[in-house]
Design a protein around this nucleic acid. Structure first.
Lengths: 177, 177
DNA sequence: GATTTCCTCAACCAATTGGTTGAGGAAATG
DNA sequence: CATTTCCTCAACCAATTGGTTGAGGAAATC
């Protein structure tokens, strides 16, 4: 909304319980502060995502688990997602590892004939991520589009997660013959 | 990136081939200019989306067509999407009509047994939209996550559209018995 | 040809804001 | 107790920028 130029050093300082000069003392400039914060946010996100536990079971079951864990993590760190996506820094770096895991799972599923052969694992993995990320970025739109549940936000998130995981799993699954 | 506060009236004027004073003459203030532009963008998007042609065929075929048309439209108007989503104005208004159409198609498909019964049409419709919108917002991430195709952007979009439509159609389809 | 409409040029103003400077307090640390 | 480290307070500055004013040119309209 307000962007970098709209951010006020004094407001940041006040909100941090310190004074403006301290920010300049530590970060030298507004840009310096933001670069530091973004860098920290990126690595925070990256390590947390790398820590999503390895699931067990068939590739499709593990796909379920990874997707659920991914969504739950993003859900628990909305500021991080907002910060990084607002900064247009949502490049490969922070999400590379979970996407790679999804790609591997999908390819493995293809090898076992569980996943459609005409599917590009890279595309599907990126789309799964978009589905998870999309909720946080477009919540108002979603709430307005969905039934009266609009107000009950936590339940809506649950439903979104569930439906998104289902959509992906059904969407990649090889059709029964 | 730079946000409202980062926008410069003189830069806007220069880029429009006029001078600063003219902007103030017509829009009275910076806020006024932005409100006008946003309002115009919203209605532009809305009417264009409402004009997506009614397809024919089975609900799933029509779903394909509507999704493709939706993505192609969004693709052709990236500035609009960027503007509205940057302004956090992506609420119900502009996207209500296409989402509603998707909901109707999905419900119809459920009635015919073509679409999974355990699926909430509202959720699935919103998720389909997110999948289409997501590309434009997350292109760098996607390009970086996908195979060497990263550089060849138009082809990547084609592939994304195709894969996304496939994912949705397969994802909502009732499993063959 | 007169007038209205639309637009430009140039100069200007007040407020905001990133960033600085320097003196000094408080709490560790030695 | 002395000193270093960390932080605050207060005042200040230069640059930017939204917004204004007023005189005037050019083209349409009458």
């Amino acid at each position: 909304m307000r962007g970098f130029a709209g951010a006020r050093m004094e407001r940041i300082a006040a909100s941090a319980g310190v004074n403006k000069q301290l920010l300049f003392y530590y970060y030298h400039s507004k840009r310096g502060l933001f670069q530091t914060v973004l860098k920290r946010g990126e690595s925070e996100l990256e390590t947390a995502l790398a820590a999503i536990p390895m699931a067990s079971g068939s590739p499709l079951e593990r796909l379920r688990d990874v997707l659920s864990a991914l969504f739950e993590f993003l859900e628990r760190h909305p500021q991080l997602v907002a910060l990084l996506s607002h900064a247009e820094r949502l490049d490969a770096a922070p999400f590379a590892s979970p996407v790679r895991r999804l790609v591997v799972l999908l390819a493995e599923g293809q090898g076992l004939g569980l996943v459609r052969d005409d599917l590009d694992p890279h595309m599907a993995a990126a789309q799964a991520l978009v589905l998870m990320l999309g909720y946080l970025r477009l919540e108002p739109l979603i709430a307005a589009s969905a039934p009266p549940l609009g107000a009950d936000e936590p339940a809506l998130r649950e439903r979104w997660r569930h439906a998104a995981v289902d959509l992906v799993v059904h969407g990649v699954r090889a059709p029964a013959e």
